[in-house]
Design a protein around this nucleic acid. Structure first.
Lengths: 177, 177
DNA sequence: ACAGATGTAAAACGATCGTTTTACATCTGT
DNA sequence: ACAGATGTAAAACGATCGTTTTACATCTGT
């Protein structure tokens, strides 16, 4: 594993487990097993590291949700939550910790959420006729169900995704009929 | 306005707008227009202040969602989001910033979420027969829809509550039938 | 009237923050 | 062979953190 990968992997874990602001550069260098000089050469500064971690996670996440049906989408997200743990959306957490006031971070978060929305819209477009009048509403509702289970899973466990999945199926069935 | 109220009000605003860890005690004393000595006498320490802010917000929030129907619930939450802004759930943000590792904060957040869940269950129990077999699932689904619109509203605006409201209505209609 | 509570302003505490610098070692491609 | 890239370890930078202390003023209830 090269240094950049090792840095991003260990940093993501620390940020996710303890929070962004609560994780010090000292903890990050120790976890990455590199000198601070090397860390700064790769990441620029702490905000740069946060942004790099988010961009890498965005890449992985989009890969995970690259499926062809809403059923597969919920299955993928639930098993991801079961293996990685349920600590909420890392993007919204980064946004919240910085009050949305760190432009590089805010921009990365918003780009991720736009891609996330587009992916849901894309899946629905293949399950419905592309110009179905319910498509926009249904897209936002499924997005909300996923955001909701991600948040609710923090205190109700990954089974929240099952309830959301059932809700999504019901809404889709009703829209088709 | 007495000092404690002034402290909690200004602190809530700063925490909400800029994040918990990113807000310094210095900013908090200045916003509250009091000496740090007085702030510490009232709040104990920073975690105590965070906890006090959350407990006060819990009180206000439970008041807002003290309604008799799911329709009123969504209406109340949407207008709250429209006036107070959409920066996500302050409780989950506090939990996330501290990695769930500050016991006093984690406890306060979990208590709030339990009360929130109980309130939704209570409303549904009056709209359904109290031992309807769909009740548990429906309760969690509506909780998820609310968590989801709270999160999604950050980047899609308070209209997210409208989409969630429609989804909730559809799920309820289907459960009744 | 006066004791105790409640407040301010400002300095000071040690700890830690993010970041840079110094001095040196080792790898890598031509 | 050797220059440039890439790395380490450790000290140091000034700034800021949360918190406490000092010295003093004013309000409040009996």
């Amino acid at each position: 594993m090269n240094m950049k990968t090792k840095l991003l992997t260990s940093a993501e874990q620390l940020f996710d487990q303890h929070g962004f602001m609560a994780t010090s550069m000292d903890q990050l260098t120790k976890a990455a097993e590199m000198s601070s000089r090397t860390l700064y050469k790769h990441a620029g500064d702490k905000n740069g590291l946060i942004q790099a971690v988010l961009m890498e996670r965005d890449r992985r996440f989009l890969q995970i949700i690259d499926v062809k049906s809403i059923d597969d989408l919920f299955e993928a997200l639930q098993s991801w939550a079961e293996t990685e743990g349920t600590r909420g959306c890392l993007f919204l957490r980064a946004y919240g910790e910085t009050g949305g006031e760190t432009p590089e971070i805010a921009k990365t978060v918003m780009a991720h959420k736009a891609a996330f929305h587009a992916q849901i819209a894309g899946i629905l477009k293949t399950e419905f006729s592309a110009n179905d009048p319910n498509l926009e509403l249904l897209t936002e509702q499924i997005l909300i169900l996923i955001e909701g289970s991600t948040a609710a899973a923090i205190y109700r466990g990954a089974e929240a995704f099952k309830s959301a999945h059932k809700a999504a199926s019901a809404l889709i069935a009703q829209a088709i009929k």
